[in-house]
Write a protein that binds this DNA or RNA. Sequence first.
RNA 1: GCCGGGGUAGCUCAGUGGCAGAGCAAUCGAUUCGUAAUCGAUAGGUCGCGGGUUCAACUCCCGCCCCCGGCUCCA
Length: 598
Amino acid sequence: MTMSEEERHLRFEGETDCEPAPLPTLRHSCSHVMAQAVKQLFPEVKLAIGPAIEEGFYYDFAKPEPFTAEDLVRIEQRVGEIIRADLPFVREEMPREEAIRFFEAGGEPFKVEILKSIDAPTVSLYRQGDFVDLCRGPHVPSTSRIKAFKLLSSSGAYWRGSERNPMLQRIYGTAWLSQGDLDKYLWRLEEAKKRDHRKLGRELDLFVFHDVAPGAPFWLPKGMVVFRELERFWRDVHDARGYQEISTPILVNKRLWEESGHWEHYRENMFLVEAEEQTFSLKPMNCPPSTYVYRHHLRSYRDLPLRFSELGRLHRFERSGTLAGMFRVRQFTQDDAHIYCRPDQLQAEIIGVIEIVQLLYGVFGFEPRFFLSTKPDTAMGDPALWEQAETALAEALAKRDLPHEVRAGEGAFYGPKIDAVISDALGREWQLATIQLDFVMLPERFALEYMDADGQAKRPVAIHRAIYGSFERFVGILTEHFAGAFPTWLAPVQARVLPVSEKVAAYGRSVFERLREAGIRVELDDRNEKLGYRIREAQLQKIPYMLIVGARESQEGTVSLRRRTGEDAGALPVDRVLADLVAEVASRPVTLTVGRSS
RNA sequence: GCCGGGGUAGCUCAGUGGCAGAGCAAUCGAUUCGUAAUCGAUAGGUCGCGGGUUCAACUCCCGCCCCCGGCUCCA
């Protein structure tokens, strides 16, 4: 039912080639115009497909040499000319066999391949000027309807998305209903570049990458503060909700992975280590080791649910071309937990996890959207249990008044799941939390049991769940979401004391020491530099509060408070600032509250 | 892994078959300063790594590593 625009083009199913809404239609039309421009400038290229996508469109071409930046400029100019020519989009229909002959004659093998793979008796073509494309539409009436577009980039892409197929040359572009919308979109792209966590991570001394450890960050002292604060918050929440923290081995004999099935299905993604003629693997997941904790005792129905949390360091071999800063790493720290429970406890446990999701995300101002993935064709396990579990998941969401979308057939083979997606400050979506039910993988493969009230050994259900997902990726997302200006409770440095000159250095130091003794992460910048210079540096480091002290403040026992937002809150008693700071750190708001009248 | 673009000082980047450069940062000195950059001096390099061509390679050629944008992958 929900079909990607690419699938529409390739499968040629459904009524249309793009969502019949104004924006997708416009983008789809723009992709045709771009293809027309490319054919005019490079008559030898072959057409593949050109759908509308989330924020624009692309078109794939078979061309021996990649497009250059200069090519894109020329193509963009030609697109502009075609738009100005105001060519109408004209729909034609013809029998499929005739269309095959038409595109064979036109030397378009990809169009022929698409036509041969569909079984409609009649197909439609769209023509604008000298350009004809196989297409179900819809399109704008004429090329002049395209008001605001821009070609963005080119890159390689596989035909039909398979790496076994030849590589085509793809050009990405975007189109919007107005110039204002286009400008806003381009601004967002620029802003995203500025906020790139790889750049900010280096500038703010949070973390860096080196080629000695591809896909694994070096956490610098300041980044480690953020990490530890997230960890502390997470532990507080879980400790208060009946979780028991465990830690299982990182280097594990391959026998375990044979038992779990990972050796068969996941070996390509595991790092292997040979020692004393045995093969070990760095764990890519925590779940198999966690079953050893479950099996440490015979479990009674009275023991359940058991909630084992684990901040496990995982290693997955990701192919070199797929690594991307903190967003795609080879080594990461998952905020994992495995809940073992009876089937009748499922719903309460799921609700409990959803509450944690809301609690943890709420602190960052994220409002999660939920997706329920249901039984796939490859599912294993008792269908009745699947039914019960899907109902439990849906009802758990309903009881928390949370709407959700269904992703039919998208569940894991071992159970259905709920995923949570958030939007960041730039409107980008991130899938973070996952709550996966498991009837098969852990319970069956590891023969987990509990003794039920009737004296029979029964199989528990396992819930795999992570909230942040991984600390690495989450810190990357937070860095970009806040553009490095972390809420005070997370900020590596929460306040910096700036004495105006050496004459008040002693007072500055006393303020600094008071704050430090109260547990505030405070720094003293009494370097021999002008105040403006030191303010600028503190500002660039996104330190929430600057406490400026001069002769007046030293007389009155105050500090002049400057927020990183640029606001000058004026002179305030040191006691007041300290009390406000402590309160702010404890309550974890996303905004700066110190010195605001209450 | 595939296609393309890159890798030069801590950072951002210029450079080119013939002595390795700038700004910022760093260090030292002067300045003692009131809300986003005081002035001067000094120091800083395996030009990603390995091989080849050449009288001479940062520059040209080959291989590899890493990064970036995509594709694929993310049971």
